[in-house]
Nucleic acid binder design. Sequence first.
DNA 1: TTACCTCATGTTAGCGCTAACATGGAACAA
DNA 2: TTGTTCCATGTTAGCGCTAACATGAGGTAA
Lengths: 336, 336
Amino acid sequence: MSSELTDPATGPPGAAPTLSEVAKRAGVSSITVSRVVRMPDLVAPETRARVEQAMRDLGYIPNLVAGALASARTNSVGVLVPTIANSIFADTVQGLSDKLEPLGFSVILAQSRYDAAREDRMLAALLSRRPEAIIMVGSPATEEGSRLLRNARVPIVETWDLPANPIDAVAGFDNYKAGVAVAKHLVAQGRAQLAFIGGDDPRGTRRWLGYRDEALASGLAEPRRLILDRKDSGSVAAHARLPGVDAVFAANDAHAIGFMSGLRKAGLLRDGPASAQPVAVIGLGDLEMGRLISPTLSTISVHGDAIGRTAATLTLERGGERRIDLGFELVLRDSG
Amino acid sequence: MSSELTDPATGPPGAAPTLSEVAKRAGVSSITVSRVVRMPDLVAPETRARVEQAMRDLGYIPNLVAGALASARTNSVGVLVPTIANSIFADTVQGLSDKLEPLGFSVILAQSRYDAAREDRMLAALLSRRPEAIIMVGSPATEEGSRLLRNARVPIVETWDLPANPIDAVAGFDNYKAGVAVAKHLVAQGRAQLAFIGGDDPRGTRRWLGYRDEALASGLAEPRRLILDRKDSGSVAAHARLPGVDAVFAANDAHAIGFMSGLRKAGLLRDGPASAQPVAVIGLGDLEMGRLISPTLSTISVHGDAIGRTAATLTLERGGERRIDLGFELVLRDSG
DNA sequence: TTACCTCATGTTAGCGCTAACATGGAACAA
DNA sequence: TTGTTCCATGTTAGCGCTAACATGAGGTAA
């Protein structure tokens, strides 16, 4: 019965079987096979069984490339992140794909590596696959990128930020306010010499601006800002490079933990509570690691997973609120 | 000149422009436009300029779905990982996409979430998009999954392991040997009561087996094995649950660091060297975090990034060695 | 000159599938 | 009976592009 030339058990002899080969074998027309795959309820049980048997015999796998062209629906979404080897965005990708995969959508993943030209290339590459939506971290870095997306005729969701004039939809939080919240907390704690360490990407810069503005508004001197290279861990930002500083806001938890390891070497880290720390350290991201180290890391908690899920929802539902602030939370532990 | 109905600056009026619309505007045939996009050298400079102008005017973006159907080349690879929110696999995805994206390949990402049924569904979903290769972490969990891949007529690369009979190609390391290496080291250090913490996925289990076999071969009692749920961090594996144990191999660094935080609370962690630790802890993965905490984490270093890049190479080159052992390295620091 | 090549461009057919519109029979109401 | 409706299935055309094979103009060699 299934011991023909194309018996899957013996391996495939020629090209992949097509819909019409299945149809021929089942003695029906192609469209009936197509219906068995996509709307089985429309096909009589006996016919359906015959078709399903034929599909099994031939090892038929529908060709979604052809299906997409014919139906103008690719059932895919393009996802653009700066980098995936960074648990903070990986959570978002996981969240959105957990939401989209069960609905039959595939995720086409691209990385910009914080490079504007590569971002534009990746956006064009994604769009040429005609995804039904684009979800990206941040906003396009160039005018060209914005133009591409604005003309793309599909939902565009920007994440991890809250731009004033989004292209279409947003799921994120206010990075500026996060900086303000950290500065407020440090000031209330009596810290006076603030510093900021992190990258100079748009979101990191917004955190810095909120942090600086709030420090200045509180009558403190302008905080120092140490811009770290993407490849550096926070550990290169030794306290030695920030003389006199008694509080540090790191743009992400990895930098914060790296900086703490520097403090430890310098004898400036206590196992006691925040009030006992010569130098307060606040991170951003709330990695699990921050809860495991000693002293535990105080941080701005952001739900990367929720950002991903919300972004997925925004691609699926065209109505309703298109600008969703998922907020953040200042989680105080022992580091500051 | 570009102020027509379809001027991109004013937003798109109708459907996305097609090749033949560009052709009409440039006064050439579609195939010439196709050549300008794919083999510009074959087109005379003046014609090319005219076509490029028409493409710009219309905001043309090639439709790779149609192109893929016509040419039977999708320029995409399917990537299946258990989960992406795990820096260890994220490195691999980053590595392979860094290699593939510049060549015009897109990455279609799917997650199995360590679920065999979901894995099979994801494999079928990936294959229905006709990728030119599949790269996956581990091997298919079911016979059905193997069958799908074996019939897929494209390169299949299994990673993070070294199966004896791979479907096609492998880029990974020997998880059993990693377990052996850790046990050997702990025995040499004079440890006698060994334990293992981690998941019971295939690769974790292979690490366990090597670890156990080596411990037994050295005359030690069978190590204890604590199977952790995927959602738990290593911190739930308190030392209290492993009475008398003086050495622990954690299946990954996150578990190791979590376990260390438990040890700290129990007063069983020293800031001194390995020899001073009441309980030795060895991780696997070599997260940067392990270098930053105190005591620094001893670990089996695995190059997830290199695995990804090698896997990418294996999908591109059909000849040559198809089973590449990237090895691992026991990196000794202060935890054990 | 004729034959032959090269180059730039075009024509034709079809990739594998689905939308939209038939078709023909059974079931049922009036 | 004669519609009318529903159901299962089929026919036709075409999605946007590319492979493969023309075509014709110009050059070049003998």
